[in-house]
Design a protein around this nucleic acid. Structure first.
Lengths: 210, 210
DNA sequence: TAGATTGTTAATCGATTAACAATC
DNA sequence: TAGATTGTTAATCGATTAACAATC
């Protein structure tokens, strides 16, 4: 069990490679080189090989990589050879969109419970999943052995929901509320701040100022 | 006009600092140190000072930073002292959520046009903005001098919409379709792939394997 | 074998952290 | 003045790129 630290940028690229390989595989292409992958996703061939080298030797010198095999290997690396049990908390507009997001299910993320505290939503169903009150979160998430929580509640409720998810034993949290959350170190946390993404763009558009 | 390259990570942190300063300002706090900011957002004090140092001297030695001033400075740096004209293309579940997302308007991103090619949506309004057919995109975006395009169409349509946005003269594109888009180098492009974020989490949860 | 392409090492580049002089 | 905290430089750490031997 070597503990080589792997750059997060590498993980993100692996995810992109795997998507590209799915596309290539659909076209019936059997073998692909690091250069082809690089061109398809806009990075350098050396980068592709380096990223893969963290995890093993998947190619054949002089030939390239078998598309199906490499794709399968990457999915395995990312932990996507099994399904993941996900709970979604906060069924506003964004929560609604996330629930219906096909990209999650395609990659094995199954939303198995939904919580909200709006009584008009409780008891309704979204894609066959019943919306439950937040009071039941800890119990239900614990019972389901839910591994991942998605937070799409307002900023004001986000830390409280986080605490409940942690208490219920989730291993990872994807947070869409634009606020810095406190979690114990063993919990994986990622923040997606939609406005920040636009702000990086506006900075760059105006960056000639510096 | 010095051309100091600024790390993207710095820009993302500046955005986080500004949000935190808004919060601190609301509490009526006048002055704040780099250490306080660092603690509030979970980075090191040196990092905060370094990030700010790229853009000027905003603090007072021995004292700290004036909360309101620093916040204003950062917003200026990010290009948020003016409003931005945004078009949204693709009014599916995600597009719908993005349209209603309060965080955009709060930071000065105003969605001024919406396009879709579903005839049942065309002519309806979202937050007072009429949904128009994609055929009118180039003309309307050009006329409005829209600077930013948000893409929330399916993968199959994303490159075509990108080309239309570029043709219409947008400066920046925020893409939610999980596909690598080709744009000319002068166009700022950012991709938000919702599934990738979950995949980084699942990799990390299982990372003890390496 | 000759050509192609990987896997890996070394060199480069870039970002973060630590330390401290400047100064309020 | 003494204590606090910035702004900045130097040291460290980490990631990317370039180069090439290995090998199919």
């Amino acid at each position: 069990m070597k503990t080589l630290k792997i750059p997060e940028a590498t993980i993100i690229r692996l995810s992109v490679y795997s998507r590209y390989l799915t596309e290539v595989d659909r076209k019936g292409i059997i073998t692909i080189s690091s250069g082809d992958i690089a061109e398809g996703v806009g990075v350098s061939p050396a980068q592709v090989r380096k990223d893969l080298a963290y995890f093993g030797e998947f190619g054949t010198r002089g030939v390239g990589y078998n598309v199906k095999d490499l794709r399968r290997h990457i999915l395995k690396i990312l932990g996507l050879s099994v399904d993941w049990n996900v709970t979604l908390v906060g069924l506003g507009n964004l929560g609604h969109a996330l629930c219906s997001y096909k990209g999650f299910r395609e990659r094995g993320f199954i939303i198995t419970s939904i919580f909200d505290n709006d009584s008009s939503k409780i008891g309704t169903t979204m894609n066959g999943v019943e919306v439950m009150p937040v009071e039941q979160l800890v119990e239900v998430v614990k019972q389901n052995r839910t591994q991942i929580g998605i937070i799409s509640v307002p900023v004001s409720a986000a830390q409280d929901i986080t605490d409940k998810l942690v208490q219920a034993g989730v291993q990872a949290i994807l947070n869409f509320a634009p606020v810095v959350l406190n979690v114990p170190p063993e919990i994986e946390l990622r923040n997606v701040d939609l406005a920040v993404n636009l702000e990086v763009l506006t900075f760059n558009v105006g960056a000639q100022r510096f």
